[in-house]
């Protein structure tokens, strides 16, 4: 029984990391419909920003979260404004463009700071483990869980309770009609993309003390993020949350019973089978023609 609870808690932790990484993509891909293959590189930039703030400015991880968000969001804004919007956000063109941007970011980081692994310190206050339902678990993992839920909450409010969010939803419904009501679609798109990029950067910074920081770290995360968003259903923030935790529990559980190699294969297979029968994902109720 103890082991069962332990495994559920572990799954929640894995799920919260998946959610953290996928949330930015859920906005960009899910809402704007841009297939952003540079998402993993935004995650990587966030991790490197954490390293730079720590090594050169002596800022701890928690203190540098806001600056990291702003830095990576600015990157995102520039890329949307000067690359994607010039392609009129056409899906096929943006796949190629964001892929290229991703490679350039990777190589730029490699050229500027070298390709060795970098070290980001775990915040000392969170470096212990604590008991949750009698199960010892890393305090930092609990912290990540809380942060990911908070960020999801903030994003939900932003999308559903603010003017910018309403404008964005209007543009998604019908861009030309929204524009005729005086909404500056270009500006809203750029801001949304920047917000999504900033979230990815935060995710990178937050996972870096548990994992490792290298120029090509993003490759793994972008796959995870797309799995979560596709399974959860495009345009469904709540779906993203649910699917992140489903995937977390599933891969954690199979990894415990079998091993991580098998878990990876089974989870991917399950997703392929699922989207064969439910291409819109698990949680999208309405599908527009």
């Amino acid at each position: 029984m103890d082991q069962f609870i332990e495994q559920i808690v572990t799954g929640l932790s894995i799920g919260s990391i998946l959610l953290l990484v996928a949330l930015g993509l859920s906005i960009i891909y899910g809402s704007m419909g841009i297939i952003n293959l540079a998402h993993g590189e935004f995650v990587m930039l966030g991790a490197y920003a954490a390293w730079v703030f720590h090594t050169y400015l002596g800022l701890g991880l928690l203190a540098s979260l806001l600056p990291i968000f702003l830095v990576v969001a600015t990157f995102g804004w520039v890329i949307e404004r000067y690359v994607l919007s010039l392609l009129n956000n056409r899906p096929l063109d943006t796949i190629l463009a964001t892929w290229g941007v991703g490679i350039m970011l990777q190589q730029a980081v490699r050229l500027m700071v070298g390709s060795e692994l970098r070290y980001v310190q775990l915040p000392p206050a969170l470096s212990d483990s604590m008991d949750v339902f009698g199960i010892p678990i890393s305090s930092y993992r609990v912290f990540l869980f809380v942060v990911s839920i908070t960020l999801f909450g903030a994003t939900w409010v932003l999308m559903n309770r603010t003017t910018v969010g309403m404008k964005l939803r209007a543009i998604i419904q019908d861009r030309s009609v929204a524009a005729s009501f005086g909404i500056n679609a270009k500006r809203v798109y750029a801001l949304t993309f920047a917000y999504g990029a900033g979230l990815a950067g935060l995710a990178g910074a937050l996972v870096s003390p548990l994992k490792s920081v290298s120029p090509d770290m993003g490759t793994g995360y972008v796959v995870d993020a797309f799995m979560v968003v596709v399974l959860g259903g495009v345009q469904s923030l709540a779906g993203t949350v649910a699917s992140a935790f489903i995937l977390g529990e599933l891969s954690g559980g199979i990894a415990f019973l079998q091993n991580d190699t098998v878990a990876k294969a089974i989870v991917l297979l399950a997703i392929v089978v699922l989207i064969r029968f439910r291409p819109e994902g698990l949680f999208t109720a309405r599908v527009r023609a």
């Binding site: 082991q3 572990t10 894995i14 793994g220 891969s251 954690g252 091993n259």
Partner: peptide, 20 residues
């Protein structure tokens, strides 16, 4: 005896097994 995929970075299930 256990093998993880190359580049794998999520070891919480492995750690549970070590505990068990």
């Amino acid at each position: 005896e256990e093998y993880v995929p190359l580049g794998h970075s999520e070891f919480s299930s492995v750690i549970n097994k070590i505990r068990a």
